[in-house]
Design a protein around this nucleic acid. Structure first.
Lengths: 125, 125
DNA sequence: TGAATATTTGAGCATATGTTCATACATAAG
DNA sequence: CTTATGTATGAACATATGCTCAAATATTCA
């Protein structure tokens, strides 16, 4: 799981400037593998949009259908559907069909935690 | 702090489709104000990039200077500096100058929490 | 002072993102 | 079967983002 050591390339071709080689080396050793960083960034990025946040916050209380979420967020039903698909692809949300209406609900225990901590953060600023 | 009620516009000009008016109304009432959603999304979005994540994870252990972070992340020192500025603008990071070297360190108690929960999430998938 | 090192800044560019519009699909009602 | 309703999908477009490159600042050292 350790990353390729960038120090080895130093002074070779790329002449990387490094002030504290030990610190870089240890950070490299303990860094999460790239695929994990990629997956992690996907999660935060999907939370990084006001419309999706509003959707997720609303779903904290109860499941909701697409058109109601559109009314709530003020964007088109199509836009909501697109966003819900992103949330579903990351398993943050699940859907249930009842007739013509599709209800969406939270499908992850961690999201609520992330939302709460984020809120606490900006409110304590 | 309640949001403008979108239901009032229904059937007027925009003919909003709403299946559960009560649910929309209560979600509207309890929704965070737009400026709070905007601030919140800024925080998550700044976490939603692998390079910035790698920087923040490294800073969890110890402060680091720009060129060392560049070596660690594999992007240019300029790119690192740009990213650090974004992190600093959101007060997630602080800087300290020692001679020619500028050291960056975490400046927020919540970020570590957010990172930990995110990691726990993707590892339990 | 002048040269070297560490960082910052701004322009430019390729790619990603969020939205709307038009349209297709799924289910219900007549 | 036909029509209406709720949702999903794909194209298109404007904007945001992350990076590199070139150049400017800041600090140290000879």
């Amino acid at each position: 799981m350790p990353q390729p050591d960038p120090i080895e390339k130093q002074d070779a071709v790329n002449r990387l400037r490094i002030v504290h080689p030990e610190r870089v080396r240890s950070a490299c050793r303990e860094a999460s593998p790239d695929h994990e960083l990629a997956a992690l960034s996907m999660i935060y990025r999907v939370l990084g949009d006001p419309s999706r946040l509003k959707i997720l916050m609303a779903l904290r209380r109860d499941e909701m259908c697409v058109c109601d979420l559109a009314a709530l967020t003020g964007i088109s039903e199509s836009a909501v559907s697109h966003q819900l698909r992103r949330l579903k692809d990351l398993s943050l949300v699940r859907s249930r069909r009842d007739g013509q209406v599709v209800y969406y609900a939270l499908d992850d225990k961690h999201v609520v935690l992330l939302l709460d901590i984020g809120l606490r953060h900006i409110r304590e600023k």
